[in-house]
Amino acid sequence: MTDPDPTTTGPLAPDDITADSPFTLPGFFGALSEGRLVAARCTECDEHMLPPRTACYSCGGRAVSLSEQPKTGEVVSYTSVNRPPSAFEHLAPVTVAVVELDSSARLTGRVDAALADVAIGDRVELRVRDPEAAGIDPAFDLSYEAEWPVHVFELA
């Protein structure tokens, strides 16, 4: 699943860092809107990072590549947000979890299930949704976020 693009096996050059590249947020969410979840993978220590970035927090190296991620994983921890920020208020209580994907990458996301139906270790699958269809107040978005999809986990 690792991108063999040779420009991503050492430090990125300024010209590599464009809005088309998943190493930037527009590029990451652009790929996500097409159904691809892309992480940065450190070629030195194998750390996976979501969203991608140009340096590895684990070892400090800049030899990072892109790696399309599996959408399945398991719940590491979870809770419910009983009083969420105002843009999410009508969705309350919002179940959220930290999920470890089968690649070892981790991310936080909403879970489309009631709190009582979730447990540590549960298998989940990441779905990509349009933010308005997901019910989030569009006023929450910054101008550049308006077209970005949101991710939600469903119990597998």
């Binding site: 947020l25 990451f28 969410f29 979501l50 969203p51 947000v81 009083r83 969420p84 920020p85 843009a87 999410f88 969705l91 919002v94 959220v96 991310l107 936080t108 996301g109 909403r110 933010p131 989030i136 929450f140 976020e145 970005w148 949101v150 991710h151």
Partner: peptide, 9 residues
């Protein structure tokens, strides 16, 4: 990008 936009507090 991923956490605030998931509604966390």
């Amino acid at each position: 990008a991923l956490e605030q936009r998931s509604g966390i507090t």
